[in-house]
């Protein structure tokens, strides 16, 4: 006769357990951790380069980079003065918590105020995996089109902060910024919205102030 085994376990329980361990570690180290998620080419690395320049001397930071291939992003961030470790996923479309734990061991960063995790460029899969971060940050560049929050709702619903990037291009593209911000707020009424241009520096102060304020709150 067949018999039934009661399981009642989250399918992502293993990842969630690793993420909780990371979260405790980051709490102990008083490190603010952000998980940056966006489509490829929306400006995650460029925002981090601008952030490194603006935060130099005000806060310590390090970066874990996730990409399918190449060390290009980690090299760019090291050139910008940040310790950076590159995870190569070899084709996988997201990072999981175990990869972050292994990366931290391999990278052996000094204790930092801010740890940025730049996820694989993808608006879908990274959304599901908790990496022990304090909050997720969604980026959307104005060249991507005004319909993206409603087309990829999960990330905008789950990200505490949405950064609209490349706003210096607004005169050249059709992008209804207020409509996009309304979309994001309808998916996540408590979202913080920022507008940045890494090219001109617009909005970078507000972004850095938010990070510093949250990092200070975590240290307190």
């Amino acid at each position: 006769m067949s018999f039934t085994v009661d399981v009642r376990r989250r399918a992502l329980a293993a990842n969630d357990a690793e993420a909780e361990q990371l979260r405790r570690r980051f709490a102990g180290e008083r490190t603010l951790v952000t998980n940056l998620i966006s489509s490829p080419g929306s400006g995650k690395t460029t925002l981090l380069e601008a952030t490194a320049r603006r935060l130099a001397g005000r806060a310590t930071a390090a970066v874990i980079e996730g990409d399918v291939a190449t060390e290009l992003d980690a090299e760019r961030l090291r050139a910008a003065g940040l310790p950076a470790y590159q995870i190569l996923t070899g084709g996988a479309c997201h990072l999981d918590a175990r990869q972050i734990g292994k990366a931290l061991t391999a990278a052996a960063f000094p204790r930092v105020d801010l740890l940025f995790i730049e996820n694989v460029g993808n608006l879908i899969c990274p959304t599901t995996y908790d990496l022990g971060e304090d909050f997720k940050v969604a980026l959307l560049s104005v060249a991507e089109g005004s319909d993206k929050p409603f087309k990829y709702p999960a990330i905008f619903a789950r990200a505490e902060v949405t950064v609209v990037t490349k706003v210096d291009l607004l005169p050249h593209v059709r992008f209804d910024l207020p409509a996009v911000e309304r979309q994001v707020l309808s998916l996540n009424p408590s979202a913080t919205l920022l507008r940045t241009s890494s090219a001109t520096g617009e909005g970078i102060d507000a972004w850095c102030d938010l990070l510093l304020e949250r990092a200070a709150r975590k240290r307190a």
């Binding site: 399981v7 009642r8 376990r9």
Partner: peptide, 11 residues
């Protein structure tokens, strides 16, 4: 939810 509720096995 994304939960495994139960499994049924045949010896």
């Amino acid at each position: 939810e994304l939960d495994v509720i139960e499994i049924e096995l045949v010896p």
